[in-house]
Computed example of a mutant assay.
Amino acid sequence: MNKNGPVIIIEDDTDDQFMLNLVFQKLAYSNKIIYFLDSEKALDFLDKTDEMPFLILSDINMPKLDGFALRHKIHIDAQLQVKCIPYLFFSTAVNQQMVIDAYSLSVQGFFIKQNTLDELEKTISVIMEYWKRCASPNNF
């Protein structure tokens, strides 16, 4: 995990992207934010980039490849596994089975998208601060 690396946001809803962009601008983290509208493009980027992302925030319900399928592909890819990129679900769709399925794929968090800018800001701040303070195997 590269604490100064980019935050990868996989979100097909442009309104949600806009809200997240406002929050990240206000919080002023130095991390670059990279948005993807679909999981296949995000996976292609992760496979080809030399950058070490800080974390991945992924929606679940997306066209082509949903968040669960993307997580599975990353989880079984040895090259991506060693990068130790925290993978977090960030979705409006949630039920108990989805959370069970997410954690069975070894996600590091499941967060519900907030409806207000203030609540979204609090959630993003908690996520970023937690992972900024967390140690990972490739920090040494």
Rank of each mutant, 00 (worst) to 15 (best):
S136D: 14
E121L: 14
T14E: 11
P86H: 06
S136Y: 06
T49V: 15
Q108M: 10
F89E: 07
A78L: 13
L117F: 10
E11I: 01
G109K: 07
D16E: 05
N95V: 00
D47R: 00
T123Y: 01
A102C: 15
K48C: 02
N21T: 13
A69Y: 08
L120Y: 04
A102V: 06
N95W: 01
D16M: 05
V23R: 06
M62R: 04
S104E: 15
I9A: 00
K41R: 09
Q81T: 12
K26A: 08
A102Y: 12
I74V: 02
A93P: 01
Y35F: 08
D44E: 05
N95G: 04
P86F: 05
F111M: 01
F45P: 02
V99E: 04
D38M: 10
M128D: 08
E11P: 00
P6Y: 08
V82L: 13
L57V: 15
Q79L: 15
V99P: 04
I124V: 09
T14I: 11
Q108K: 14
V7C: 00
L46I: 07
F36G: 00
M62E: 03
Q108E: 11
L27W: 00
I33T: 12
E51F: 13
T49W: 08
A28Y: 10
F90H: 07
I60M: 03
F24N: 04
Q114R: 13
Y103M: 02
D13L: 07
L57K: 09
L46C: 09
D47P: 00
E129N: 13
C84S: 14
N95D: 11
K83C: 06
N31T: 03
D12Y: 03
D47V: 04
W131A: 04
K113G: 01
D38V: 15
I34R: 03
L70V: 11
L117S: 05
A102S: 09
D15W: 14
T123G: 01
I9Y: 00
S91Y: 02
I74K: 01
Q108A: 11
I76G: 02
Y35N: 10
A78H: 15
D118L: 10
L55A: 11
E40D: 04
E119S: 13
F18D: 02
K32R: 13
Q25I: 01
Y35Q: 07
S125Q: 12
I8Q: 04
Y103A: 06
S106T: 15
E40W: 05
I10Q: 06
I127T: 13
L55F: 14
T92E: 04
M62K: 03
I76P: 05
I74T: 02
Q96E: 11
Q97V: 02
K132V: 06
I33V: 15
V107P: 02
R133L: 08
D66L: 03
I33D: 08
N95M: 04
A135T: 15
I76M: 08
Y29A: 15
L27E: 01
R133Q: 11
W131N: 12
Y29E: 15
A42G: 02
N115F: 10
M98K: 13
N21Y: 05
R71M: 07
P53W: 08
Y87M: 05
K83D: 04
M19Y: 00
K113C: 09
D12K: 00
Q96F: 06
N21R: 11
V23Q: 14
F24A: 05
S125G: 06
L20M: 11
K64V: 07
